[in-house]
Structures are given as structure tokens and as C-alpha cells.
């Protein structure tokens, strides 16, 4: 959407200067270009602009107020409610699902690839199943 550029005459220029000061960046977006052009073509408004710049500079003396105290930030952060159910992260859900699928595939594929147990395997599994009762006695 394009903005409708404002037409500028002296009365409107002075009204906007009174309201927004000498920095055209604070002016309504649709009036900035017309204001700059008007000022360039009308040298007599320079005195008005200089006066407005003076007030802007004065207000600039109290522009920087410093950052809020760390104590305030900590106090506010400590009051963030944590009793509500946390929002479930969709990425975490996706990762969980992917892990589940991978696990199923791995388990199934592993089952297919694994050799069928031989008699030796069965023997060894029986052999290391539990300590022998004879060992306890020994």
C-alpha cells in the first residue's frame, strides 16, 4: 500500500514544526518528503527550524535515562508464572516422533539381519544366566 504524500504550504509546515520539532524523522511519514522540499525552497523558514532545533537539543539533555536496574529485571523475571502447562514445542514433538519411527525401523531391520540363534548361543545364554549355586557354596 502506498502512502498518499501530503501537500505542504507554509501554514501546514509551521503547524507540523510546532508539533513535531525540527527533525523530519518525527514528522508524519506522509509529510516528510514534502516538508524537506518545502524547507529547501523557502529559506525564510530556517529561523523557525533553528528555534525548533534549540528546543529539540534541550529535550535531548534528558533523552538518555539509563537502563532499568538489574534488580528490577530480576524481580519481574522472578514473577513469570510457571504454573501453567508449558507450551509443547512442535519441533520437540517432531523429534520424538522421528525417534520412535527410527527405533521401530531399527528394531525390525535388526531382527531381520540378526542370525537365528544357534545351539551354541542358547548354551552360552544358559551358562551366564545366573551364578551357579555351587559357586555360592564354594
Amino acid at each position: 500500500m502506498t502512502r498518499k504524500e501530503e501537500t505542504m504550504d507554509r501554514e501546514r509546515f509551521v503547524a507540523l514544526l510546532d508539533a513535531y520539532g525540527a527533525d523530519f524523522r518525527r514528522w508524519p511519514a506522509e509529510a516528510r518528503a514534502a516538508a524537506a522540499a518545502f524547507a529547501a525552497q523557502n529559506a525564510d523558514v530556517e529561523a523557525l527550524l533553528a528555534e525548533a532545533r534549540g528546543l529539540d537539543a534541550v529535550l535531548g539533555l534528558v533523552r538518555d535515562q539509563g537502563a532499568p536496574s538489574g534488580e528490577l529485571t530480576a524481580r519481574i523475571l522472578s514473577r513469570i508464572p510457571r504454573t501453567q502447562r508449558p507450551a509443547f514445542d512442535r519441533r520437540a514433538l517432531f523429534a520424538l516422533a522421528a525417534c520412535a519411527v527410527f527405533g521401530v525401523v531399527l528394531g525390525y531391520g535388526g531382527g531381520l539381519l540378526a542370525p537365528t540363534p544357534t545351539e551354541d548361543d542358547v548354551y552360552f545364554s544358559m551358562a551366564f544366566e545366573a551364578p551357579s549355586a555351587f559357586e555360592d557354596e564354594g
Binding site: D18, G21, A50, E51, A52, R53, G54, A57, V58, L61
Partner: peptide
């Protein structure tokens, strides 16, 4: 701004 300009004319004068 008009009220501030009147109240702070001396500060503006010094600054400028």
C-alpha cells in the same frame, strides 16, 4: 512544546 520553549528559553540559549 510551546510551554517547554517558554520555560526553557534560557537553557536553549545557552546550549545554542
Amino acid at each position: 512544546r510551546r510551554a517547554l520553549k517558554a520555560a526553557l528559553a534560557d537553557v536553549a540559549h545557552d546550549l545554542m
